[in-house]
Protein backbone atom coordinates (compact mmCIF):
# COMPACT_ATOMS: atom_id res chain seq x y z
CA UNK A 1 0.00 0.00 0.00
CA UNK A 2 1.32 3.46 -0.87
CA UNK A 3 2.06 6.15 1.68
CA UNK A 4 -0.42 8.70 2.97
CA UNK A 5 -0.52 12.06 1.16
CA UNK A 6 0.09 14.87 3.61
CA UNK A 7 0.27 18.62 3.32
CA UNK A 8 0.89 21.00 6.16
CA UNK A 9 0.34 24.75 6.33
CA UNK A 10 0.49 25.07 2.56
CA UNK A 11 0.06 28.53 1.09
CA UNK A 12 -0.16 29.50 -2.55
CA UNK A 13 -1.10 32.88 -3.91
CA UNK A 14 -1.56 33.89 -7.52
CA UNK A 15 0.96 36.40 -8.82
CA UNK A 16 -0.88 39.44 -10.19
CA UNK A 17 0.55 42.07 -12.52
CA UNK A 18 1.78 45.16 -10.72
CA UNK A 19 -0.59 48.10 -10.69
CA UNK A 20 2.39 50.45 -10.94
CA UNK A 21 2.62 51.86 -14.48
CA UNK A 22 6.41 52.18 -14.35
CA UNK A 23 7.13 48.66 -13.05
CA UNK A 24 4.63 46.44 -14.90
CA UNK A 25 7.00 43.45 -14.70
CA UNK A 26 6.83 43.36 -10.92
CA UNK A 27 4.27 40.92 -9.59
CA UNK A 28 2.22 41.31 -6.47
CA UNK A 29 0.56 38.52 -4.56
CA UNK A 30 -3.12 38.05 -5.16
CA UNK A 31 -5.72 35.68 -3.74
CA UNK A 32 -4.98 32.03 -3.13
CA UNK A 33 -5.05 29.42 -0.41
CA UNK A 34 -3.67 29.97 3.08
CA UNK A 35 -2.16 27.58 5.61
CA UNK A 36 -3.96 24.47 4.40
CA UNK A 37 -3.28 21.20 6.22
CA UNK A 38 -4.82 18.12 4.73
CA UNK A 39 -4.16 14.42 4.45
CA UNK A 40 -5.43 11.71 2.20
CA UNK A 41 -5.05 8.02 3.01
CA UNK A 42 -5.12 5.15 0.51
CA UNK A 43 -8.68 4.02 -0.12
CA UNK A 44 -10.16 7.15 1.41
CA UNK A 45 -12.57 9.51 -0.32
CA UNK A 46 -12.37 13.11 0.83
CA UNK A 47 -14.93 15.63 -0.32
CA UNK A 48 -13.67 19.16 -0.78
CA UNK A 49 -16.61 21.49 -0.42
CA UNK A 50 -16.87 25.22 -0.57
CA UNK A 51 -18.67 27.93 -2.49
CA UNK A 52 -17.47 29.22 -5.84
CA UNK A 53 -14.21 31.11 -5.46
CA UNK A 54 -13.33 29.52 -2.12
CA UNK A 55 -10.04 28.11 -3.42
CA UNK A 56 -11.02 24.52 -4.18
CA UNK A 57 -9.55 24.53 -7.69
CA UNK A 58 -6.38 26.27 -6.51
CA UNK A 59 -5.89 23.68 -3.76
CA UNK A 60 -6.51 20.86 -6.23
CA UNK A 61 -3.99 22.32 -8.66
CA UNK A 62 -1.40 22.59 -5.91
CA UNK A 63 -2.03 18.96 -4.97
CA UNK A 64 -1.81 17.89 -8.62
CA UNK A 65 1.58 19.56 -8.95
CA UNK A 66 0.46 22.31 -11.33
CA UNK A 67 1.27 25.04 -8.82
CA UNK A 68 4.22 24.93 -6.49
CA UNK A 69 3.45 25.68 -2.88
CA UNK A 70 4.93 28.98 -1.64
CA UNK A 71 4.94 28.02 2.01
CA UNK A 72 4.33 24.84 3.95
CA UNK A 73 5.25 21.26 3.30
CA UNK A 74 3.90 18.46 1.16
CA UNK A 75 5.36 14.97 1.53
CA UNK A 76 5.65 14.59 -2.27
CA UNK A 77 7.51 17.15 -4.39
CA UNK A 78 5.93 18.67 -7.52
CA UNK A 79 7.39 16.11 -9.95
CA UNK A 80 6.46 13.17 -7.72
CA UNK A 81 2.97 14.54 -7.34
CA UNK A 82 2.54 14.66 -11.11
CA UNK A 83 3.52 11.00 -11.28
CA UNK A 84 1.51 9.70 -8.35
CA UNK A 85 -1.61 11.85 -8.53
CA UNK A 86 -4.11 11.68 -11.34
CA UNK A 87 -5.81 15.01 -11.98
CA UNK A 88 -9.16 15.63 -13.56
CA UNK A 89 -9.80 19.32 -14.23
CA UNK A 90 -13.23 20.88 -14.26
CA UNK A 91 -15.01 20.86 -17.61
CA UNK A 92 -12.43 20.03 -20.29
CA UNK A 93 -13.77 20.94 -23.72
CA UNK A 94 -12.44 18.02 -25.72
CA UNK A 95 -12.52 18.93 -29.38
CA UNK A 96 -11.01 17.96 -32.70
CA UNK A 97 -10.86 14.91 -34.90
CA UNK A 98 -8.67 12.89 -32.59
CA UNK A 99 -10.33 9.76 -31.23
CA UNK A 100 -10.76 8.89 -27.55
CA UNK A 101 -8.16 6.15 -27.86
CA UNK A 102 -5.63 8.43 -29.58
CA UNK A 103 -6.09 11.04 -26.86
CA UNK A 104 -5.44 8.48 -24.15
CA UNK A 105 -2.42 7.23 -26.08
CA UNK A 106 -1.00 10.77 -26.13
CA UNK A 107 -1.42 11.05 -22.36
CA UNK A 108 0.20 7.63 -21.88
CA UNK A 109 3.23 8.83 -23.89
CA UNK A 110 3.56 11.66 -21.37
CA UNK A 111 3.63 9.09 -18.57
CA UNK A 112 6.26 6.96 -20.34
CA UNK A 113 4.68 3.77 -19.05
CA UNK A 114 2.66 1.10 -20.74
CA UNK A 115 -0.96 1.27 -19.68
CA UNK A 116 -3.60 -1.12 -20.87
CA UNK A 117 -5.77 1.49 -22.52
CA UNK A 118 -8.42 -1.05 -23.50
CA UNK A 119 -8.90 -1.93 -19.85
CA UNK A 120 -9.01 1.75 -18.98
CA UNK A 121 -11.70 2.66 -21.52
CA UNK A 122 -13.71 -0.34 -20.31
CA UNK A 123 -13.33 0.81 -16.70
CA UNK A 124 -14.67 4.30 -17.34
CA UNK A 125 -17.40 3.07 -19.67
CA UNK A 126 -15.94 4.41 -22.89
CA UNK A 127 -15.34 1.07 -24.60
CA UNK A 128 -17.98 1.66 -27.27
CA UNK A 129 -16.74 5.22 -27.79
CA UNK A 130 -13.02 4.50 -28.07
CA UNK A 131 -12.99 5.28 -31.80
CA UNK A 132 -15.31 8.27 -31.53
CA UNK A 133 -13.88 11.66 -32.40
CA UNK A 134 -13.52 14.01 -29.44
CA UNK A 135 -15.79 16.60 -31.07
CA UNK A 136 -18.65 14.07 -31.13
CA UNK A 137 -18.58 13.20 -27.43
CA UNK A 138 -21.46 14.10 -25.15
CA UNK A 139 -20.83 16.01 -21.91
CA UNK A 140 -20.99 12.81 -19.87
CA UNK A 141 -18.55 11.07 -22.20
CA UNK A 142 -16.19 14.05 -22.02
CA UNK A 143 -16.18 13.81 -18.24
CA UNK A 144 -15.44 10.10 -18.49
CA UNK A 145 -12.57 10.82 -20.87
CA UNK A 146 -11.16 13.40 -18.44
CA UNK A 147 -11.38 10.77 -15.71
CA UNK A 148 -9.70 8.21 -17.96
CA UNK A 149 -6.84 10.69 -18.58
CA UNK A 150 -6.45 11.05 -14.81
CA UNK A 151 -6.32 7.28 -14.44
CA UNK A 152 -3.63 6.69 -17.07
CA UNK A 153 -0.61 5.21 -15.35
CA UNK A 154 -2.66 3.87 -12.40
CA UNK A 155 -1.95 6.73 -9.98
CA UNK A 156 -2.00 6.26 -6.20
CA UNK A 157 -4.28 9.24 -5.72
CA UNK A 158 -6.94 10.95 -7.74
CA UNK A 159 -7.99 14.58 -7.47
CA UNK A 160 -11.22 15.49 -9.21
CA UNK A 161 -12.31 19.08 -9.68
CA UNK A 162 -16.11 19.31 -9.71
CA UNK A 163 -16.53 16.13 -11.77
CA UNK A 164 -20.32 16.05 -11.40
CA UNK A 165 -20.85 19.35 -13.19
CA UNK A 166 -22.92 18.89 -16.30
CA UNK A 167 -23.75 15.25 -15.59
CA UNK A 168 -27.33 14.03 -15.53
CA UNK A 169 -28.46 12.10 -12.38
CA UNK A 170 -27.93 8.75 -14.08
CA UNK A 171 -24.40 9.64 -15.13
CA UNK A 172 -23.73 11.04 -11.65
CA UNK A 173 -24.75 7.74 -10.11
CA UNK A 174 -22.48 5.81 -12.48
CA UNK A 175 -19.68 8.22 -11.67
CA UNK A 176 -20.11 7.76 -7.92
CA UNK A 177 -20.10 3.97 -8.35
CA UNK A 178 -16.87 4.17 -10.30
CA UNK A 179 -15.24 6.45 -7.73
CA UNK A 180 -16.29 4.10 -4.90
CA UNK A 181 -14.92 1.12 -6.82
CA UNK A 182 -11.56 2.88 -7.31
CA UNK A 183 -11.39 3.72 -3.61
CA UNK A 184 -12.14 0.10 -2.72
CA UNK A 185 -9.09 -0.82 -4.79
CA UNK A 186 -6.92 1.41 -2.60
CA UNK A 187 -6.91 4.70 -4.46
CA UNK A 188 -7.09 7.84 -2.31
CA UNK A 189 -9.57 10.26 -3.85
CA UNK A 190 -10.15 13.97 -3.30
CA UNK A 191 -13.28 15.24 -4.99
CA UNK A 192 -14.49 18.82 -4.99
CA UNK A 193 -18.00 20.15 -5.21
CA UNK A 194 -20.00 23.13 -4.06
CA UNK A 195 -22.95 20.88 -3.23
CA UNK A 196 -22.78 19.03 0.08
CA UNK A 197 -25.60 16.68 -0.86
CA UNK A 198 -23.67 15.46 -3.84
CA UNK A 199 -20.79 14.20 -1.71
CA UNK A 200 -22.20 13.26 1.66
CA UNK A 201 -23.29 9.74 0.70
CA UNK A 202 -19.92 8.43 -0.40
CA UNK A 203 -17.21 10.60 1.18
CA UNK A 204 -15.37 9.37 4.24
CA UNK A 205 -14.34 12.87 5.23
CA UNK A 206 -15.13 16.40 4.19
CA UNK A 207 -12.86 19.42 3.93
CA UNK A 208 -14.75 22.71 4.13
CA UNK A 209 -13.17 25.67 2.38
CA UNK A 210 -14.09 29.33 2.48
CA UNK A 211 -12.09 32.32 1.21
CA UNK A 212 -8.92 30.30 0.67
CA UNK A 213 -8.91 28.77 4.13
CA UNK A 214 -9.75 25.33 5.40
CA UNK A 215 -12.47 25.80 7.99
CA UNK A 216 -12.95 22.15 8.92
CA UNK A 217 -11.65 18.71 7.98
CA UNK A 218 -13.45 15.70 9.42
CA UNK A 219 -16.46 13.50 8.80
CA UNK A 220 -19.58 15.49 7.93
CA UNK A 221 -21.30 14.27 11.10
CA UNK A 222 -18.35 15.36 13.26
CA UNK A 223 -18.18 18.75 11.54
CA UNK A 224 -21.93 19.31 12.01
CA UNK A 225 -21.64 18.28 15.64
CA UNK A 226 -18.57 20.42 16.33
CA UNK A 227 -20.15 23.43 14.70
CA UNK A 228 -23.38 22.85 16.57
CA UNK A 229 -25.52 22.67 13.46
CA UNK A 230 -29.09 21.81 14.42
CA UNK A 231 -31.11 19.55 12.16
CA UNK A 232 -33.68 21.62 10.32
CA UNK A 233 -36.99 20.75 8.78
CA UNK A 234 -38.43 22.12 5.60
CA UNK A 235 -42.11 22.98 5.73
CA UNK A 236 -44.29 23.72 2.72
CA UNK A 237 -47.94 24.63 2.53
CA UNK A 238 -50.74 26.33 0.61
CA UNK A 239 -52.44 29.66 1.15
CA UNK A 240 -51.11 32.84 2.74
CA UNK A 241 -47.48 32.51 3.96
CA UNK A 242 -47.35 32.38 7.76
CA UNK A 243 -44.63 34.15 9.75
CA UNK A 244 -41.00 33.10 8.98
CA UNK A 245 -41.92 31.58 5.62
CA UNK A 246 -41.65 32.90 2.07
CA UNK A 247 -44.04 32.65 -0.89
CA UNK A 248 -43.19 29.57 -2.91
CA UNK A 249 -44.93 28.42 -6.10
CA UNK A 250 -48.66 28.46 -5.25
CA UNK A 251 -48.13 28.55 -1.48
CA UNK A 252 -45.28 29.04 0.95
CA UNK A 253 -42.06 27.46 2.14
CA UNK A 254 -39.80 27.77 5.16
CA UNK A 255 -37.21 26.13 7.38
CA UNK A 256 -37.52 25.60 11.10
CA UNK A 257 -35.61 23.98 13.96
CA UNK A 258 -38.70 23.20 16.10
CA UNK A 259 -39.90 19.60 16.62
CA UNK A 260 -42.35 17.84 14.30
CA UNK A 261 -45.02 17.99 16.98
CA UNK A 262 -44.62 21.75 17.33
CA UNK A 263 -44.64 22.16 13.55
CA UNK A 264 -47.98 20.41 13.28
CA UNK A 265 -49.38 22.41 16.16
CA UNK A 266 -48.20 25.71 14.67
CA UNK A 267 -48.69 25.24 10.95
CA UNK A 268 -51.45 22.63 10.47
CA UNK A 269 -54.09 25.31 10.46
CA UNK A 270 -52.08 27.46 8.03
CA UNK A 271 -52.19 25.07 5.08
CA UNK A 272 -49.18 22.82 5.94
CA UNK A 273 -48.73 20.17 3.22
CA UNK A 274 -45.18 18.77 3.45
CA UNK A 275 -42.56 18.24 6.16
CA UNK A 276 -39.13 16.85 5.30
CA UNK A 277 -35.59 17.10 6.73
CA UNK A 278 -33.68 20.07 5.35
CA UNK A 279 -30.61 19.06 3.38
CA UNK A 280 -27.40 20.45 4.86
CA UNK A 281 -25.84 22.99 2.53
CA UNK A 282 -22.65 24.98 2.34
CA UNK A 283 -24.31 28.09 3.66
CA UNK A 284 -25.24 26.27 6.90
CA UNK A 285 -21.71 25.01 7.32
CA UNK A 286 -20.08 28.34 6.57
CA UNK A 287 -22.48 30.27 8.76
CA UNK A 288 -21.72 27.92 11.63
CA UNK A 289 -17.97 27.87 11.02
CA UNK A 290 -17.44 31.61 10.51
CA UNK A 291 -20.19 33.14 12.60
CA UNK A 292 -21.36 35.16 9.60
CA UNK A 293 -25.08 35.76 9.30
CA UNK A 294 -27.21 34.54 6.42
CA UNK A 295 -27.04 37.81 4.52
CA UNK A 296 -23.26 38.07 4.74
CA UNK A 297 -22.86 34.50 3.57
CA UNK A 298 -25.37 34.79 0.76
CA UNK A 299 -23.71 37.96 -0.48
CA UNK A 300 -20.92 35.71 -1.70
CA UNK A 301 -22.71 32.48 -2.31
CA UNK A 302 -25.49 31.75 -4.72
CA UNK A 303 -26.68 28.33 -3.78
CA UNK A 304 -29.47 26.61 -5.62
CA UNK A 305 -30.94 25.10 -2.47
CA UNK A 306 -31.26 28.56 -0.93
CA UNK A 307 -33.08 30.17 -3.80
CA UNK A 308 -36.71 29.43 -4.67
CA UNK A 309 -37.00 27.39 -7.82
CA UNK A 310 -38.83 30.05 -9.79
CA UNK A 311 -36.01 32.50 -9.20
CA UNK A 312 -33.41 29.99 -10.35
CA UNK A 313 -35.29 29.68 -13.60
CA UNK A 314 -35.25 33.45 -14.03
CA UNK A 315 -31.58 33.69 -13.16
CA UNK A 316 -30.63 31.01 -15.60
Amino acid sequence: MHEKFQMENVTFRYPLPSSNFFTPWKKRLGPGIHQISLELSPGEIVGLIGPNGSGKTTLIRVIAGLYKEMEGEINLNTTMRRGKIGFMPEQVRWEGKKTVFEQLKEISHMQNINTDLNKLVRLVGLKSQSNTMLKNLSQGMRQRLSLACALVGAPDYLVLDEPMNGLDPLAQKAFVNLISQLAENGMGILISSHRVQELKHFCDKVALMHQGQLLAFDTLEAISENLGIEAKTVIEGKGEPPENTIPYLEGWRGETEISSKEIIETYASKGLKFIYPSPLDIADLIKAATGLDSEEVSMNITLQSMVPRREIGEDE
Binding site: L66, E90, I107, M110
Partner: peptide
Protein backbone atom coordinates in the same frame (compact mmCIF):
# COMPACT_ATOMS: atom_id res chain seq x y z
CA UNK B 1 -10.16 24.07 -23.68
CA UNK B 2 -8.60 22.98 -20.38
CA UNK B 3 -6.50 20.24 -22.01
CA UNK B 4 -3.36 22.15 -20.99
CA UNK B 5 -4.26 21.46 -17.33
CA UNK B 6 -4.12 17.75 -18.08
CA UNK B 7 -0.89 17.98 -20.09
CA UNK B 8 0.90 20.08 -17.47
CA UNK B 9 -0.12 17.68 -14.71
CA UNK B 10 1.70 14.77 -16.39
CA UNK B 11 5.08 13.60 -15.07
Amino acid sequence: SGVLDIKLSQP
